[in-house]
């Protein structure tokens, strides 16, 4: 069974006074299987956030059907099984980071001990331990985004609806977020994420949905959309005099050497070397014991 199923979904924001009604989503079909990561792309105002809000049960729709885990999106039971991360600051910003996560844990029905253990793990994973006793309102936007991601992951959800999950994150944070989402997907979570970071979507997502003015402009797997029949080869560390022989070998196998360039370090690698705390790369492996 698909984790998310949307058929002919339309969302119309009613007009008020002299303002005309706005059609935010025109008939849209979408199916997301468990374990899939769907990237929703599109210009500002194309309907990405509206789609996520519908799936999170926060937005009524005017036509069509939508189900999440076989239930209507507004079903209260889904709150614990479906994580929704809005594109905005975290709530309860007067509390410190640990307390905000503890509060989310309590709302997800986790026992206090288990919630506290998971909070520690995710704070540590997202490198927020040093700031965990500080009020969230003093966090930078990237730290707030990390905290929201941690809150989303706390309950080990079956479906994750993420609005710009890596917006404002530094490269290390972005890498951490992507690793955590990959692991969630491997465990069977269906993930729908709206994003403007094409490179991250390309690295992370299995499927892509491109919206344009509320309509589906493009949909499919990355392999379908970007092609996967041909192989490209990236080789580093070649000696200059080996190039002709390599070129000849590639040509002999029907390929083309597109470009060769002097080797230099990638900016990201340089950043990683300079980073004070390089990411551990170990996504917390929490079990479901104690979760209601």
């Amino acid at each position: 069974m698909a984790a998310i199923s949307v058929r002919q979904l339309c969302v119309t924001f009613p007009g008020r006074w002299r303002k005309p009604a706005v059609q935010a989503l025109l008939p849209l079909d979408l199916e997301v299987q468990p374990g899939a990561i769907v990237g929703v792309l599109g210009q500002n105002g194309s309907g990405k956030t509206t789609l996520l809000r519908v799936l999170a049960g926060l937005q009524d729709w005017s036509a069509g059907t939508a189900t999440v885990l076989g239930r209507p999106p507004g079903d209260g039971i889904l709150v614990r099984r479906v994580a929704w991360q809005p594109d905005g600051p975290p709530p309860l910003a007067m509390l410190n980071g640990r307390e905000v996560l503890q509060w989310f844990g309590s709302q997800l029905g986790l026992e206090n001990d288990l919630a506290d253990a998971r909070v520690d793990e995710w704070l540590s994973y997202f490198e927020l331990q040093h700031a965990s006793r500080r009020a969230v309102r003093t966090y930078s936007s990237g730290m707030q985004r990390r905290l929201l991601l941690a809150a989303s992951l706390l309950g080990e959800p079956e479906v994750m609806l993420l609005d710009e999950p890596t917006s404002g994150l530094d490269p290390v944070g972005s890498e951490l977020a992507m690793a955590a989402l990959r692991q969630c997907a491997r465990k069977g979570a269906a993930i729908v994420m709206a994003s403007h970071h094409l490179l991250e979507v390309e690295q992370l997502c299995s499927d892509v949905l491109v919206l344009h003015e509320g309509r589906c402009a493009l949909r499919g797997t990355l392999d379908e959309l970007l092609g996967s029949g041909d192989r490209s080869l990236v080789v580093r560390g070649l000696a200059e005099d080996a190039l002709p022989a390599i070129r000849a070998a590639i040509t002999a196998h029907g390929g083309t050497l597109v470009r060769s360039e002097a080797q230099r370090q990638h900016l990201y690698a340089l950043y990683r070397q300079l980073a004070v705390r390089p990411p551990s790369g170990t996504v917390p492996a929490v079990d479901h014991r104690g979760a209601n």
């Binding site: 999170a56 049960g57 926060l58 209260g76 709150v79 929704w84 809005p86 905005g88 600051p89 975290p90 709530p91 309860l92 910003a93 007067m94 989310f104 709302q107 997800l108």
Partner: peptide, 22 residues
């Protein structure tokens, strides 16, 4: 009123709290 987001429509994270709380 200032602390608990659902007391206002535009408070930080009000919608997230409204969705999360029973």
């Amino acid at each position: 009123v200032a602390f608990w987001p659902p007391f206002a429509t535009d408070a930080r994270g009000a919608e997230l709290v409204r969705r999360t709380t029973k």
